[in-house]
Structure formats: C-alpha cells, structure tokens
Design a protein around this nucleic acid. Structure first.
Lengths: 151, 151
DNA sequence: CGCAAAATCATCCGAAAGGATGACGACAAC
DNA sequence: GTTGTCGTCATCCTTTCGGATGATTTTGCG
C-alpha cells in the first residue's frame, strides 16, 4: 500500500513540474483555464480509477488462494511468557483478567467469577490496557497473544 | 454502473461551472494556476480512487479456486474454514469485519479502512454476532477462532 | 427483466466499556 | 515505622457497543 502512495506522489510531483513548464504557453491563450482544469481532472480521475482497480486487484488475488485442507496440529502446552509479563509490569491478577477477557467474558461476568466487584475488574482492565498500550479489550487480547502472554 | 457515469458527469459539470465562475478571482492572483490544478487533481484523484474501489467492490467472492492441498499446518498457514462459514451463513463481508475486530480495531476504524459508514460496520457486526451466537466482540472472536474462521 | 441475497446507511436507545481520580487495607521490604 | 506494591472499591463522565428496525442500493442469477 505504501508503494501506491509513492507512485501517487511521484506522478503528482511530475505533473506539477510539467504544469510550471507548460504554464507559459497557456497564459497566452486566455480562457483556457477550464480546459486546463478539465484536462487535469480527467487525467487524475483516470489515474485514480486505475489506482482503485489496482488496489482491489490485490484483494481479489488473496481470495483466489488455494483452499488448504487443514490438518489439526496438536495444541502445544501454552507456556506464559513470564519475561514479557514482568518487563511490562503486568501483575498476575491483571493477566488473569486478561485471559478471561480473551475468552469473551464481560466485566460483570469476570467480576462474578472472581468474587470481586465490577469496578475492581475495570480497574485491572484499565491498568492492563495501559501497560499493553491498548485502547480496547479486543486490542489488548491481540497484543497479549502477540507477546505470548495469552494462549 | 450507469449511475456512476452519471454522478461522474454531474460532478464534472459542476466543477467546470464552478471553474468558470471562480476564474475571475483567480486571474487576479498570478501564478495560482498550479495550485488550482493541484486542487482539481487531488479532488478528482480521490474521486477516481473512490470510483475505482466502488466499481470493483464485492468481486472478491466470485472466485474460489478449490485446489485441495494437504499441508501439515506449518504454523502460519491458515485456511479459512469455508464449510463452517457457509453452514453458519456468514458472508464474506461479515468475515472480513470479524477479522478486523479480532485485530483489535474499533468500529470506526474498521469503517474508515473499508470505506463504509460506521453504521454499516455495526450492522455487519450485529449479523455476525447473531450467527455466531456471541453477545460481545471478544466472544465473537473467541467463537470465530474455535470454528476455524479466524487465524 | 425480476427476484433474492448482500451490502449499505440511518435512527433511537440502553448497556457495556473506558478514562480519570481518589481512597483504603494488606503485606513485604528497607 | 516508613515506603512501595498490589488488590480492592468507588464516583463521575465520555465513548463505544449492541439491539431493534426500516429503508435503499447493488449484485448475482435464473
């Protein structure tokens, strides 16, 4: 995707350059601004369409990938990454709440399971999210898995 | 498809009209042609991109090359469980939103990425959650992984 | 063409989640 | 005995989610 942005910028710059060069012959012909603008518009519109098509072509390619028959692999025992946990300063309780979040429980359900108040759960959540740099619980779960904190 | 052309023409015409009208204040300011052109270029480029995306939207689903290849699951290879997806009646778009949810994006972020409104995302969410029997997005993600719909 | 399935967008409303902040007790370490 | 960490709980407020529902548009297909 970054490649597209690059191409975009390049073509844009080139066009601007061409603009400045060709401007002199255009100032001679009065009332050519509309024509000029229309030309640029058409050019860039086509370019945009091309870009759009190109972007989505990538999406199609992904969908065309072969269907792979899944062979269930033995789920290895999960070893929580204690190093990561400690380096982030995540406490055991916070991790406990994180795993329950990952299992899809709501704050209330977690509170019930752990015999604490919902407020407490929210506090742990907030602290854990902060340490993980997450803004949402789904994001926290994603980060947690990345860091090997969650199975 | 004709509708797009119509919109295109309309916007184009409007722009040209605006051009003629605003030309007078532009001729006063010299050397503003490049700026002017750049503006039009950006506008039409964005429009073109949008159009391109729109035209090719939804084409991803048609192709489904069913080449069954047995692979001893080498960690990264993820094969979306098409059978499960279809038996649950989950559409491609819904699954797409689900994967973005699993990555920790908010509805708003998803809407931005997919060029749709937040309301649309919420609708897809609601349908997907219903089909998965989930009440929360975290639960939906958990279910999705269980069923082999998500990596 | 006409139909059905998807996809899109909207509005209203209540519930859930998140941010900020303060407070209190338990317990270990210095 | 002071200090620091952890777990607990609370309040206030904002944002985000989710449910219900209806409408329109696109698209695929017979």
């Amino acid at each position: 995707m970054k490649r597209h942005a690059l191409i975009f910028g390049l073509v844009g710059g080139l066009l601007i350059a061409t603009l400045q060069y060709t401007e002199y012959r255009f100032v001679v012909i009065e009332h050519s601004v509309e024509l000029y603008g229309a030309l640029v518009a058409i050019l860039f519109a086509s370019f945009g369409i091309w870009l759009g098509l190109r972007i989505t072509r990538g999406r199609e390619t992904i969908r065309e990938t072969v269907v792979i028959r899944e062979v269930p692999v033995a789920a290895e025992a999960f070893a929580p990454n204690v190093a990561q946990q400690q380096s982030l300063g995540i406490t055991a309780r916070e991790l406990e709440i994180l795993t329950l979040i990952a299992r899809g429980f709501s704050n209330r359900e977690i509170a019930t399971q752990l015999f604490v108040s919902e407020n407490t759960v929210k506090t742990h959540c907030a602290r854990a999210f902060d340490k993980l740099g997450a803004a949402r619980r789904t994001q926290a779960v994603q980060r947690g898995k990345e860091l090997g904190l969650l199975p």
